[in-house]
Computed example of a mutant assay.
Amino acid sequence: MTYRNGTYIAFDGLGQTDPILSDFKYYGAIQAWTANKNMDFKYVNSHDKTCAVRDSSLRTTLEARIRERQSNSKNMVVILSSDTRKTGSMLTYEIEKAVDYYKIPLIIAYVDYQVVAKPVKLSKYWPEALRSRIENGTAKAIHIPFTKDAILKSVEQFNVYNMPVTAMDNYSKADHRTFGTLGSAG
């Protein structure tokens, strides 16, 4: 049995080769937090455990790397923005494999929100693969704002051995205060 200690990060590349024009920039932010010696943000990146691939790689090559990375992952951060496509991206494949085959808990991070109190109200962001798995209850997910503290807490808290209870879990007001996304009056 493989020890699963990595965090797999998924996002929609939006068919772009320039990372600034896609949701890759948010993955870049997570990498920057990790590289910054003045920030307490550490995680095991599943993408660093295998050979690199390019967006121009054959789909079969991309899928093989995804499977290899996910098989060693304890959880998956899914970055969602207003640009995330509902179908037709590799994100669909990543969600399908993570939930259906590898049984990885999802950490759904919304880049456009500082507080995630009612995840169902953010369903407009969900790719169809995520929507169907939330609706049928096969996904186990925590819904969070895309902030350093929320992502770090989720990555440390949820894994294949400690799943969110449902597909619609979210953090409390008190947790959002500790993330610095909700003032003391909120």
Rank of each mutant, 00 (worst) to 15 (best):
S81K: 04
S82N: 10
A141D: 04
I95N: 09
T60S: 15
A52L: 09
N36K: 09
D100A: 14
K49Y: 08
L21N: 08
E68I: 03
K37I: 08
L122P: 06
L58D: 09
V111T: 15
R133C: 00
D18T: 14
S46Y: 05
T50G: 10
R54W: 03
N75W: 02
N72W: 03
S46W: 10
A98R: 06
N36G: 02
H143V: 13
Y125G: 04
T84A: 03
M76C: 13
V53L: 02
R133M: 00
K121P: 01
D48A: 12
K49L: 14
D83H: 02
P19R: 10
Y27K: 15
L122K: 14
P145N: 08
R65F: 02
T50I: 04
S46V: 08
A29R: 11
Y43L: 15
A141C: 03
N136L: 05
W33R: 06
A129V: 02
R69A: 13
A64N: 12
E128Q: 11
K49W: 10
D112W: 07
R85S: 11
R131S: 14
G28D: 09
K121C: 09
K103D: 09
S57E: 13
P19N: 11
K25C: 06
Y113C: 11
L130E: 00
H47S: 10
I134D: 02
I108P: 01
